[in-house]
Design a protein around this nucleic acid. Sequence first.
DNA 1: CTGAAAGCGCTAACAC
DNA 2: GTGTTAGCGCTTTCAG
Lengths: 343, 343
Amino acid sequence: MATIKDVAAQAGVSPSTVSRVLADSPRISQETKERVRQVLNQLDYHPNAFARSLVTNVAGAIGVLIPPGTEFFQNPFFSEMMSGVAEVARSQGYDIVLSTSASDEMKVLDRMIRGRRVDGILLLRSRTKDPAIQTVIDQRFPAVLLGRPPADQPISCVNNDNVKAAYEATNHLIRIGHRKIGFLGGDTAYVVTADRLKGYRQALLDHGMEPDERLEVFSYLVEHGGYLGMMRLLAASARPTAVLASDDVLAFGAMRAAGELGYQLPDDMAIVGFNDIRLAELANPALTSVRVNMHDLGVAACELLVERIQKPASLPTERLVPTELVVRNSCGAKKFPTNVLSV
Amino acid sequence: MATIKDVAAQAGVSPSTVSRVLADSPRISQETKERVRQVLNQLDYHPNAFARSLVTNVAGAIGVLIPPGTEFFQNPFFSEMMSGVAEVARSQGYDIVLSTSASDEMKVLDRMIRGRRVDGILLLRSRTKDPAIQTVIDQRFPAVLLGRPPADQPISCVNNDNVKAAYEATNHLIRIGHRKIGFLGGDTAYVVTADRLKGYRQALLDHGMEPDERLEVFSYLVEHGGYLGMMRLLAASARPTAVLASDDVLAFGAMRAAGELGYQLPDDMAIVGFNDIRLAELANPALTSVRVNMHDLGVAACELLVERIQKPASLPTERLVPTELVVRNSCGAKKFPTNVLSV
DNA sequence: CTGAAAGCGCTAACAC
DNA sequence: GTGTTAGCGCTTTCAG
């Protein structure tokens, strides 16, 4: 494996000259550059990333802190969002380091930021009590939160207006005639769940309905969680005629549960999801869903992160990605053409 | 940011002693360890990953070379497979570096392996002419291919028996009465497409049918590609009554196309997919699909990779992950209970 | 059981 | 325009 010294020797120059050629420094003569470049090629030289990082203190990579557990990976949200992140990362010359925390998220975070493996970090899930957020703030480490900081902490973030989106989605259900509307959410510890729940409740209140806790269930964020949650909802004495699920994956589970119990969608039961994953359109019936623009979220998050890496002193910014309710057949909107209602 | 020297000074020992404590060397007395550890904590010391890597020549990370384009990210196969990879990587203490190649895959590969950013690399897609494979072999760089090497090159790989799986799936369609069966594949440059095509053709031949190239279409590996491909198949003069799609995503596109043109599934058209992604079960009708066990593929691939990193001299091994045909309603198997036929 | 010293491969003053 | 030198933070002989 050729080092910079080998190249220098071969080209009859000093290592620093080679280093300068690599950086295309203007202070090197054209002929020297030519000569060195030839040797570079001939020896098939590749700089050692660690040596360079050690001295420059830049890693050339951004970290993505994956929440513990595998359900995040399994959610199509993850890959769609990551495709946006990857797009930006690539164009800006950053690698992506996935954290793969087992359980001790904070240890992983420490390793990443204190170990200087990455130049910035993307936090993927904000919880109402989230030590990771405070850590990056305390360490003044470039970071972007995908979601909303629970307590208005000064951190750059990319989010949807989840309260409003859930409000509009619930409104839609009310508008088409539903009066008993259930809420099927992920863990309440997630800010996103809380926000969507809030919008849902507000819509009920604004239409003179009292939110009913028996119609609010929360479960593990996988299809099976949605299935179980829906079973609970259907068993409730005040059985809902419609359900707002805070994730399409939950909505699919809910659809399966309803189907197994003999409910006809959308006649006996309306369901609305969140995210508008690709397969929402292909479900039976096609799932009405709030499009959160997952790819755009990833793009925006990575852009913001690169910005913070490059000017760490700049003030944290928030970016809202617009949502839209995509109405399909799962919510009894058969009478409506499949269309898109802007939120 | 505390360095090893700071710790050494504070603890009244030499840097090498601290280093030994970090490595839990048996040559250090218990009391010294205690004392140093206390300072380690007090100063909240975290080793600089680059400095360590520079001297040890281990990166503590495995690379995943993502094929150019975003369609790979968007395929649920990716995230399911990655969840398996992440699981193993985490348990073995490796980070995951995603490559994010734009177009020039080889440059990225070079950067990764020659730049020593990663200890081993996972190649995600094998093409009939694949320079990446030859490169890792030539460089003797620890690598595992997800798929089959096109030309029996000596590289560790994890794969399904795709020929057999496609053979069985096609057999199933024949068994339930189909005689005109189409094939809807991804790019023919992918080995996996070729293998599945081969199995499909062989099944036809073994039942006295002649493969008909007009019934074989190949397209971009996204839902829309499946949609377009299906349009082509349906327009063929020898219109098929059944289609084997080499990916569920293609199958979903095909279902949409068939639906839009007024075909009733499964009565007018049978469709079988590959992968058995989570939502296959939820489509309308539920999609019959070859379960390839994506998560297991990821687990096996990462295990093999770790093995190669740890004993690079060992011979390359191949690991086959079994498949099974999961029969659902999309292939006219209504009369069958939903069940699983082992392959 | 511990310390001193060298060096991993690179960059960045500082000279000339 | 180019070379010399020091040093990034760590591990690892080699001494003792």
